[in-house]
Amino acid sequence: MYVNGIEVNYFSAGQGEAVLFLHGWGSDFLSFKYFLDSLSAYYRVFALDLPGFGQSAEPPAAWSVDDYADFVLTFMGELKIDRVILIGHSFGGRISIKLAARKNLPVSIDKIVLVDSAGIRPKRTVKQTIKLFFYKGIKHFISVEFIRRRYPELLEKWRQKHGSPDYLNATPRMRECFVKVVNEDLTPCLSKIPYSTLIIWGEQDYETPLGDGKIMERLIPDAGLVTLKNAGHYSFLDQGFTFLRVLDSFLNIKRTA
């Protein structure tokens, strides 16, 4: 399937009201495979590899969260989805927050589920501030033509030593996207979300700490937080049975034994 000229790998199964899963950074929709199959007996379930991930092509430029949100809206339009429940993990949670905070959407949102969601920019520690200072200094230093020709690998060596795994494992285009995405704080969007929101978080999530989930619960007007013990950033995989039971309750699914 092509959406705005971008080849997209996606999943569709089931009937009834639409549920759209949005995966995290560096992942793809297959991370949800068990839950996609399980929910498709009760809902019309969709998922996609977002541009630049899985089997979908990269975006044509360095996209922001808003660009990804726009793309998801176009994707839903192509599939005639006019009413949806959003389930977003990590980066997918960022996109869900952006969409849910917008007014006058071309699609109706019934509920949203944020799973170990990204979106709250942490305050920099002193160590991080120093690292950023040195990074900018090196970047400025190698901008001098003579230095750039003599030491072309200097900045990349610094990135390899100090960059995050998500950044280092990305292609040049997706690195540009990553920088745009992580530098945007979505905290101001949270109070604008009018939909019933379930927040599910791994108690041992160190990538997006549990404190972020508590902030989201406090700022989103109609939100509840469920903490999964012995679970990390991929809490839905670490505690799949409990995750599905919580999701079933929120989506009013009554399974037969």
Score class of each variant (00 low, 15 high):
residue 3 V to E: 01
residue 35 F to P: 06
residue 190 L to K: 00
residue 98 K to G: 14
residue 97 I to A: 06
residue 90 S to L: 11
residue 33 K to T: 08
residue 98 K to P: 12
residue 208 T to D: 01
residue 133 F to W: 06
residue 12 S to C: 01
residue 129 T to I: 12
residue 167 Y to A: 07
residue 10 Y to F: 05
residue 20 L to T: 04
residue 244 L to M: 07
residue 12 S to I: 08
residue 64 S to P: 06
residue 247 L to T: 05
residue 228 L to K: 10
residue 178 F to Y: 12
residue 6 I to Q: 04
residue 227 T to M: 12
residue 174 M to Y: 06
residue 192 K to W: 00
residue 49 D to R: 05
residue 237 L to H: 04
residue 120 I to M: 04
residue 62 A to I: 02
residue 1 M to Y: 13
residue 124 R to V: 08
residue 87 I to V: 14
residue 242 T to C: 11
residue 51 P to T: 01
residue 108 S to E: 11
residue 110 D to E: 15
residue 56 S to C: 06
residue 237 L to Y: 07
residue 159 R to V: 15
residue 173 R to T: 13
residue 132 L to R: 11
residue 100 A to I: 13
residue 250 F to D: 00
residue 201 W to G: 10
residue 29 F to R: 09
residue 77 G to C: 02
residue 21 F to R: 09
residue 228 L to T: 04
residue 206 Y to C: 09
residue 99 L to Q: 12
residue 243 F to W: 04
residue 122 P to M: 11
residue 23 H to A: 07
residue 90 S to M: 12
residue 160 Q to D: 14
residue 90 S to H: 06
residue 29 F to T: 02
residue 46 F to V: 07
residue 139 K to Q: 15
residue 151 Y to T: 02
residue 138 I to N: 04
residue 61 A to H: 15
residue 182 V to W: 03
residue 68 Y to I: 05
residue 82 D to F: 12
residue 85 I to A: 11
residue 8 V to Q: 00
residue 168 L to V: 05
residue 56 S to R: 00
residue 162 H to E: 15
residue 88 G to W: 08
residue 187 T to D: 09
